[in-house]
């Protein structure tokens, strides 16, 4: 039996002594699409950085496919909230994406190797996100939504087993957001996906499992938000906030919104 794609075992994490995450435990099977929901500052990005091995838990442990995430380089793809590119950074779209095709580890990067093969794979990944026609454009010329798709292509070209997307639609306009949302279904076909968002409307239609984050994490292996999760995320009880009716509406509609609800039993 293959190990879970992502596993948190009683993980706690603190920045300078201030707790950010406490007692986080969940196990995500391969092929799942986990929606991670929570307000700003709840610890969602910290959760992602722990999963990538970028942060070390204060206590507990994180496993990616049964191993320390720091030793799982190349198995994890990451799409950040936005491209942290210095204005005017001279890099073409295809060159940026091709970096994702280099073999994991410093030795592979120093060696380089088959540049033509990397370019071909980068073009294929750009085709998948419908940006192949912009391959030779400077990245600086792209819109926010296009940049986000370039980041997805860069993550995909390495064919990761675990793909983590951190608020992929947070900084783009509605048209770009729609395009990203359309991509999400295809991404989960061949890999485990962790989709972090504070935006319920992005996450709910696609997930097979859900985690509510606000220092603690409540995990459900099905696309269902319950009242306990909503209270954790928003700190609210029903009828005491204008958002309540919206949240309630989503809770009531979940069986129909979760596209994979029927086949999520194993998730």
């Amino acid at each position: 039996m293959s190990p879970p794609a992502l596993q948190f075992e009683d993980v706690c994490f603190a920045y300078n002594g201030a707790p950010v995450l406490e007692g986080v435990s969940f196990s995500l099977p391969a092929g799942a699409l986990l929606g991670v929901l929570g307000p700003n500052g709840a610890g969602k990005t910290t959760l992602a950085r722990l999963a990538m091995g970028r942060l070390t838990p204060t206590s507990g442990r994180v496993l990616v496919a049964g191993r320390d995430p720091r030793k799982a380089a190349g198995r994890i793809g990451y799409v950040p909230q936005f491209m942290t590119l210095t204005q005017g950074f001279p890099v073409k779209v295809v060159d940026l994406v091709a970096l994702g095709a280099l073999p994991a580890g410093l030795a592979g990067w120093l060696k380089g190797g088959d540049a033509a093969g990397r370019r071909r794979r980068a073009l294929e990944a750009l085709e998948a996100v419908e940006l192949a026609d912009l391959a030779d454009r400077p990245v600086a010329e792209l819109s926010g939504g296009q940049r986000q798709r370039v980041l997805i292509a860069r993550a995909l070209v390495g064919d990761p087993e675990l793909l983590i997307l951190d608020e992929p639609t947070a900084n783009i306009d509605p048209a770009g957001k729609s395009c990203i949302v359309d991509l999400l279904d295809g991404l989960a076909e061949r890999r485990t996906v962790v989709l972090i968002s504070h935006d319920l409307t992005v996450t709910v239609p696609h997930i097979t499992a859900v985690a509510a984050v606000n220092r603690r994490v409540l995990f459900r292996p099905e696309p269902r938000l319950d009242q306990e999760m909503l209270e954790l995320i928003y700190g609210l009880h029903r009828h005491d906030c204008p958002m309540d009716s919206f949240i309630h509406h989503l809770v009531e509609r979940q069986p129909t919104l979760g596209r994979r609800h029927g086949d999520s039993a194993g998730a």
Partner: peptide
């Protein structure tokens, strides 16, 4: 370009 990306590539 991106330190998080560099980290995920080992």
């Amino acid at each position: 370009l991106d330190r998080e990306f560099a980290h995920t590539r080992g």
